[in-house]
Design a protein around this nucleic acid. Structure first.
Lengths: 203, 203
DNA sequence: CGATAATGACACACCACTGTCCCATTTTGT
DNA sequence: ACAAAATGGGACAGTGGTGTGTCATTATCG
């Protein structure tokens, strides 16, 4: 018999990248959300659990994402896209670098699950072709921090690498507090911003 | 035939809790260290990998820890014990609460792998009978923070819960930087302490 | 040296997750 | 109402981690 079998339905690659009309786009989104939601807490969560969370059969999940790796990749790019979109929107009209850091951190806290997914296990995506997109973001954050140092908002003698790691860690902490119900969202964001800006400010 | 079979050798429970002479104690330690080292980065690491890291056959590993859960429990209590011991030693002769926080954070950074193991996945040990021991530590840290607030070293309007989470997050960040080779140990510890104390200080 | 302790190397059976395939059923759009 | 699209629900084999057990070999200690 012939070589390629058209499986049963889509996979988004079986069709010529048409915008993925209504239904398909929605279930795809549901699966991605479920994956991000579960994998942000436990990356070893099986596909069956994700399908359940997405209220979809495992069959359907496999139709959209042939294997686990495909879903991982898709979740990765989706998370990065969302973060970039949210970040850009949040820092649209900021005067100073400090303001920008403030807004950026609050935006990150709002999508804390994605941060957890991306950074809770550093070498989870090493070697993934899509991971580069995020390196750019980190670089962008590093330059933003340098700018804040030049403006005097942050101390000069702080290693930018530390500032970046510190930034994400505090977002992480805030997101954890929120998801654990320890602190209300706005309060957690306030504290994270305050801790970051004061902690790295000039003495 | 009788009920219980003595397996092949120890398990530490088959014998009457004698101090576990030389060899046994050493291999047990090697396995625990391997488990903590691997699980601190990837909790789904299989027992075979741990046995390899400990330079021990999987058979031997199972002789010391009958099943995965037993090793998890043992690693948990061992990590907690180490942390408590190190903490106590570090904060032995501190005058102020701020000094104590400083020393405590540096001590935590030194055993960063254990912190990663314990806190990288919050609900990893929920329901574990041995997990309580650590709750006490967190409580102790909370009271220490309250004391620092009374002494004026930390701001009053900071929620103790946040301070605790923030404390561990910064330790986490420092440990990550060190293990990634981004920063030398002492530098990372300095920055973490500085960020914490300044970040939560009065304005 | 000799007895016991400790280990290594396998061979299994078991189970959960994965990926594939098929077919019946429901939903969507015309 | 009708055809195509989308889904659900299985059955199935492959795979990797786990736990148990046996036996031969090595290390340790009296």
């Amino acid at each position: 018999m012939a070589a390629e079998y058209c499986k049963d339905v889509p996979t988004a690659r079986n069709r010529g990248d048409e915008p993925a009309t209504g239904v398909r786009q929605r279930t795809r989104r549901a699966v991605l959300d479920a994956a991000l939601s579960l994998w942000s807490r436990d990356f070893s969560a099986p596909l069956g659990d994700i399908a359940d969370r997405a209220q979809v059969s495992r069959s359907t999940l496999h139709r959209y994402f042939p294997d686990r790796q495909a879903l991982v990749d898709a979740a990765l790019v989706d998370a990065i896209e969302t973060i970039e979109r949210v970040s850009e929107k949040a820092t649209a009209n900021c005067a100073t670098a400090a303001e920008e850091l403030d807004a950026l951190m609050r935006a990150m806290v709002d999508v804390g699950d994605l941060i957890l997914f991306l950074f809770s296990d550093t070498d989870r995506f090493t070697g993934n072709p899509h991971w580069d997109s995020d390196d750019e973001d980190e670089q962008e954050l590093a330059t933003l921090i340098t700018r804040a140092q030049q403006e005097g908002a942050l101390a000069d003698d702080v290693a930018p690498d530390w500032a970046v790691g510190c930034f994400y860690s505090l977002v992480f902490a805030a997101a954890s507090s929120i998801s654990a119900g320890t602190l209300p969202r706005h309060r957690a964001a306030d504290l994270a911003v305050r801790t970051f800006l004061h902690g790295l400010a000039n003495r």
